[in-house]
Amino acid sequence: MSFRFPSNEWIVELSRLLNESPSYESSAKDWEGDFVFVVEPDDGFAETAYLYLGLRHGKSTGGALLAAPDERPTEYRISAPFGVWRKVIEGELDPIQGMMMRKLKLDGNLMKIMRYPKAAKEIVSCCADVPTMWPGN
């Protein structure tokens, strides 16, 4: 079964995979802070989507497609055009490289997130494990 990106089903599946990942659990065992991933429109996707991911103490507290970015309070927001997200999910763009190059825009406490680069890597690794169906395919 494949999950369309971006969608509620896709982010829920990511949340589920994170909860099955011992590497994510160990790398984020002290982490507290929820995210909203903003998928901005580009040639490959015409709308704006907001994907919420709850994260606490090495587990995901849940995922959801939001109607608006402030529907749930989150500590971090990462925004990028759809095509950039696709590259990250498919492993073509290292998310840290992407943020440094301003392809992904981070809003939130930078110092806190600098402590957890391995957790970020594990999240991306789980993203790659979500069987993904892309718009237009």
Binding site: L110, M111, M114, Y116, P117
Partner: peptide
């Protein structure tokens, strides 16, 4: 921004 906050030491975790 990261270097300003934590110096070059901020690279240790990465």
């Amino acid at each position: 921004q990261a270097i300003r906050m934590a110096g070059t030491a901020g690279y240790v975790d990465m």
